[in-house]
């Protein structure tokens, strides 16, 4: 059987590695979900601007990590991202859109850099990148889907409670990073 016998070695592993990498650490997962929670809480246009800003800034961070460009305090930055984003949701903070995008983009750099320095060798680069970005986007989508409960009277305090959980997770990871 010659079908697909000589093409894109490592393609499947590249895509699956990329898809699984963003969900491989709870510190990454809660921050990415928190972006969706905050976006949903802020409403239009933040609900889509933030999830667009995050993957692009994260890819930029990933590019830096891959190229060996150092970024100090990566672990602290990742933990702080969950903490700050969680606090934003708890406080139902409504800064100007550009401020929210800068906050999210800045933290995304840390997440991307950490992923970039940990990428496995030998996988298909393009498919890895596609899987990576899709997984990140889907985590935001999960956050947005959960965040839509803010439309209901019972949902607003519940959402802020979810933000508190994210912030608590951030404190835990920050304590681990500094220990």
């Amino acid at each position: 059987m010659t079908f697909l016998a000589h093409v894109e070695a490592g393609a499947a592993s590249g895509f699956l590695s990329g898809l699984s990498h963003p969900v491989s650490g709870l510190d990454h997962v809660i921050a990415m979900v928190a972006v969706g929670l905050w976006g949903a809480q802020l409403g239009k246009p933040a609900v889509w601007v933030l999830p667009v800003a995050f993957p692009i800034a994260m890819a930029l961070g990933g590019m830096m990590g891959l190229m060996g460009i150092p970024l100090p305090g990566v672990e602290v930055g990742i933990a702080a991202s969950a903490m700050v984003l969680g606090v934003m949701v708890v406080a139902a903070a409504r800064p100007p859109l550009w401020v929210a995008a800068v906050i999210v983009g800045l933290f995304a750099l840390f997440h991307g850099h950490a992923h970039g320095t940990e990428l496995p060798a030998g996988a298909n680069g393009t498919l890895y990148s596609i899987g990576f970005v899709i997984a990140t986007g889907l985590l935001h989508a999960v956050g947005i889907a959960i965040g839509l409960i803010h439309r209901y009277d019972w949902g607003r305090p519940t959402l802020r409670g979810a933000g508190a959980l994210v912030a608590a997770g951030g404190v835990f990871f920050l304590w681990q990073a500094l220990a």
């Binding site: 890819a59 891959l66 680069g125």
Partner: peptide
């Protein structure tokens, strides 16, 4: 659709890093 475009742009950025990866 625009989000899809941003994912494509992000994949390109990561791929550029991949092409110039250190080590």
């Amino acid at each position: 659709v625009r989000v899809g475009g941003s994912w494509i742009a992000a994949a390109s950025l990561l791929m550029i890093g991949w092409l110039f990866r250190a080590g």
